[in-house]
Amino acid sequence: MIDTLKILNLLLRFILELILLFSLCYWGLHVQSGVFMQIVLGLGLPILAAVVWGLFISPKASVRVPLFVVLFIEAILFAAAVLCFISSGFVTFAVIYAVLAVVNRFIILKWKQQGFDT
């Protein structure tokens, strides 16, 4: 049973990561700065977030940093996603998303699912 819950927690994590990328893309494509900036932000922000995630946060990160650095970078990325949702008018979804992200991260730390010593 606990193994099933661990798998579901990792699935939730993956979904939260995809939503993070979507929020940055959606906000970037709807910012009122002209078509060129919409394209640059709509594509550039999610790519930048994915690169940072891959370098520092992912389980197979190419740059190993202490856990507190991982948590700090992750908090910035998830906060950016929440702010993008709020700015786009999805306030209720932003709050639910933020709560799920915090609870998910807590469970990952509790169950030692990321491979860091806590």
Rank of each mutant, 00 (worst) to 15 (best):
F93M: 12
T92R: 13
V40A: 15
Q113R: 15
A94T: 04
G42W: 07
G54W: 06
L77V: 00
Q113V: 04
F78G: 01
E74Y: 08
Q113P: 10
F78I: 05
L109E: 13
A50D: 03
Q38H: 08
V65I: 14
E74Q: 13
V51Y: 00
G54I: 11
A94E: 07
Y97H: 04
I39Q: 12
A94Y: 05
F93C: 02
K60R: 14
G44L: 06
V82S: 01
P46W: 04
W111K: 12
A49D: 02
I86H: 04
I39N: 11
Q113C: 09
F56A: 04
I107G: 02
Q113H: 10
G115W: 07
Y97G: 06
A79E: 02
S58M: 14
T92N: 09
P46A: 11
L67C: 05
C84P: 03
F72L: 15
G115V: 10
L43M: 15
V82I: 12
P59G: 07
P66T: 05
S87F: 06
V91R: 09
V63S: 00
K112N: 15
Q114W: 15
G115H: 09
F106T: 05
V70F: 05
L48V: 14
I47C: 07
L77A: 01
L109G: 14
L43K: 10
V99R: 07
A94H: 03
A79D: 03
G115R: 07
L43Y: 07
A61F: 06
A61T: 03
I96M: 13
L43V: 15
V103C: 09
A81D: 03
G42R: 10
I73M: 05
F56E: 02
V70I: 14
P46H: 06
A80E: 01
I47N: 03
A80C: 12
F68R: 11
L43T: 14
S58T: 14
I76V: 15
V52T: 09
I86P: 00
N104W: 04
V99P: 00
L71T: 07
I57M: 11
F106I: 12
V70R: 14
N104K: 09
Q38I: 13
P66L: 08
A101W: 08
L109P: 03
F72W: 11
P66F: 06
K110E: 06
V52Q: 01
W111D: 09
R105P: 01
L71P: 04
I96G: 02
K110G: 00
G44I: 04
G89E: 10
T92G: 02
I96N: 02
I57E: 01
G44K: 06
Y97F: 15
P46E: 09
L71R: 13
V40D: 04
G42I: 07
V65E: 07
I107P: 04
G115C: 11
I86E: 05
A79C: 09
V51G: 00
I96E: 10
Q114D: 15
V69Q: 09
V70D: 01
L109R: 11
L55I: 11
L100H: 04
V102A: 15
A61I: 06
W111Q: 13
F56R: 02
V103S: 06
S62A: 14
V51W: 01
F72K: 08
L77W: 01
A94S: 13
Q113T: 02
S88H: 03
L71E: 11
K112F: 12
I107Y: 10
A98C: 14
G54E: 05
A101V: 03
I39E: 10
P46S: 09
F90M: 13
A49K: 01
